[in-house]
């Protein structure tokens, strides 16, 4: 069954823009991205929207639908009432390029700052060996498709642009946790997580977990365990005292 949906789409660029109203046909089973493609094809050929796989695996079509960060290819039109007005805006934590396309280079900058995986020497036969139960925790985080919805929704940078230099965001704090839990990684990333990547700024309000299209329990399985590891390294009283004395001597 088809119906005419009311769409409000943000159009503009870094200098300004506004929500524009459109009426677009919706067919059964379609997703928001289908409707935007129909809008492009019938009314606004110059509408800028980034997309690729249409299957929730490339992480390209991130946007905010009715104020909530979502992948447009996974947002079914059937979840809205036919008479409901649907608002689509670009991600609001990043600079806009045009229409629904944002500049997400903040995330790539943070990715470049991550110290790489440092494995030990290979075994005599040229292989690395590890047990499945040792590595399976980290494997959950490998499901990340880098859609940056968690980075977008995190209020630490969304509501405070000035925190961007000091805070890596949930996606990259999760990367630190992934490596810190990895059985073959040889780097202690706990102090780095707190002092350089701003783990202490996370106040665990779990929005990153709420928006993750892969269902990764970012807060419970990565950020909080990483916070606990930082406590081991920095805030256990003997360790804290030792660090304080060392700092004083220096």
């Amino acid at each position: 069954m088809s119906y005419e949906a009311n769409l409000r789409v943000w159009r503009g660029d870094a200098d300004g823009g506004e929500l524009q109203d459109f009426t677009v046909t919706v067919n059964e089973g379609e997703v928001v991205l289908d409707i935007l493609h129909r809008l492009q094809a019938t009314q606004t050929p110059d509408l800028a929207v980034r997309w690729n796989c249409k299957a929730g695996k490339c992480g390209s079509c991130s946007a905010e639908v009715n104020g909530r960060p979502r992948l447009m290819c996974l947002t079914r039109m059937g979840t809205f009432e036919p008479d409901e007005s649907i608002t689509i805006t670009p991600l609001r934590a990043f600079p806009v390029v045009r229409d629904l396309v944002t500049d997400v280079s903040y995330n790539y900058d943070k990715a470049r700052e991550m110290p790489p995986f440092v494995p030990p020497e290979r075994d005599a036969d040229g292989n690395h060996r590890m047990q499945q139960i040792d590595v399976e925790r980290s494997q959950e985080f490998r499901k990340c498709i880098e859609c940056f919805l968690c980075q977008d929704v995190c209020h630490v940078v969304r509501d405070h642009e000035d925190n961007k230099p000091a805070f890596a965001g949930p996606r990259y704090l999760m990367r630190l946790a992934e490596l810190d839990m990895h059985p073959l990684d040889g780097v202690d990333r706990r102090r780095l997580a707190q002092d350089h990547f701003g783990l202490g700024m996370c106040n665990i309000t779990k929005c990153c977990s709420e928006v993750c299209p892969e269902g990764i329990k970012i807060t419970d399985n990565a950020l909080i365990p990483m916070k606990e590891r930082v406590v081991d390294r920095k805030y256990v009283p003997p360790t804290w005292l030792g660090n304080a004395i060392r700092r004083r001597r220096q």
């Binding site: 943000w10 870094a14 506004e18 905010e64 909530r68 609001r92 934590a93 806009v96 509501d159 642009e161």
Partner: peptide, 17 residues
Amino acid sequence: EGTGAPGRARLAARTLR
């Protein structure tokens, strides 16, 4: 300092939820 920071999409609403 937040969603109204320079360069971001200009939207006056605190939230569109």
